[in-house]
Design a protein around this nucleic acid. Structure first.
Length: 311
DNA sequence: CCGCGAATAT
DNA sequence: AATATTCGCG
């Protein structure tokens, strides 16, 4: 039955070469050709094992909001559904990778069912040297921690994707940080995070629109390939119950986006009508990994789990 | 509370 | 240098 495999404790962060708190764990960004998003989840728990090996503890925080489910449905089924009949339910998805002085690196696992040719032996082991210098913020384990400084949240492509999707669904109209955050259902996401990212995202969009033909260079590879369907949908009062909702004016969207359903095209990209430049012609696929998180805080309650992300 | 801008940290 | 996060103001 559902038993969490928790064999090895977090042997510390996989933080390699940690100089002085200045390292990155986003290795995946190196451009790991990962399988598509539609990776068959034959064994949803397999990653757990791997994860645990990496110090990713399973967080049975099964708090799927209806909204999440709803959005999933609306979004036309995100990637594989891990909704198992019962028994094993790895719901610990959406989580953001966090990094801090004492970070735990979360590594994506290659779900290559058939590694006939694609076989990459990724060995990501970084021996963390026992630094005699210990930081004062050793509060890695303390459920009763009250003020846990939120580590740096890294917007993983997937996370961003989710963000974009949510924004698209909400419509630029209701795309307010709070609603977005709530809809994203990402644990540990704060309004500030979203707000900041939203700003950037908007800027990016703006920039793109202004110079849809001029692309000196790829600005944000991450944001790239993220068209924003102008589907102005009304979201239920999910956010704050704005019972308003209507008259979505067609905002100037020179995108020329045909009635495209906000279909989150996962794991694929390439068609982008906003950039004739062709810089993104190449499929620089985003490393795709499960939405797991490298929570290093004892892997246990990091945030109030009463709600997935209710702040 | 939300959005923006600047400052700051990594 | 780039990006994220935080702070302050409207």
């Amino acid at each position: 039955m559902g038993e969490e495999v928790r064999m090895s404790e977090y042997g510390g962060g996989i933080d390699g070469g940690d100089g002085d708190g200045d390292d990155r764990v986003s290795e995946w960004e190196a451009g790991l050709p990962s399988a598509d998003d539609l990776a068959p989840l034959s064994q949803p728990l397999i990653s757990l094992e791997l994860a645990s090996a990496f110090s990713i503890a399973p967080e049975p925080s099964r708090t799927l909001l209806d909204v999440n489910r709803a959005s999933e449905s609306t979004l036309a089924g995100l990637r594989g559904h891990r909704t198992l009949s019962q028994g094993f339910s790895s719901n610990n998805e959406f989580k953001s990778f966090v990094e801090d002085r004492d970070p735990a690196a979360a590594e994506e696992e290659e779900a290559e069912a058939d590694g006939s040719d694609s076989r990459k032996m990724r060995k990501i082991d970084s021996a963390e040297e026992a630094d005699s210098a210990m930081r004062t913020d050793n509060s890695v384990e303390d459920p009763s921690a009250k003020a846990m400084k939120r580590p740096r949240l890294v917007w993983t492509p997937q996370l961003h994707k989710r963000f974009v999707e949510v924004v698209a669904h909400l419509g630029i109209k209701n795309a307010v940080p709070k609603t977005i955050m709530q809809l994203m259902n990402v644990e540990g996401l704060t309004r500030e995070n979203v707000a900041s990212h939203l700003q950037k995202y908007r800027l990016y969009l703006k920039r793109m629109q202004g110079l849809s033909s001029e692309g000196p260079s790829s600005s944000d590879p991450l944001f790239a390939s993220t068209p924003v369907p102008q589907s102005l949908h009304e979201s239920p009062g999910g956010g704050g119950g704005h019972g308003k909702g209507h008259a979505p004016m067609s905002m100037p969207m020179p995108y020329g986006v045909p009635p495209h359903m906000p279909m989150p095209v996962y794991g694929h990209m390439g068609m982008q009508m906003g950039n004739p430049q062709g810089f993104q012609s190449n499929h620089y696929m985003v490393p795709q990994m499960d939405w797991s998180a490298g929570n290093r805080c004892g892997s246990l309650v990091s945030y109030p789990n009463s709600g997935p992300n209710d702040k």
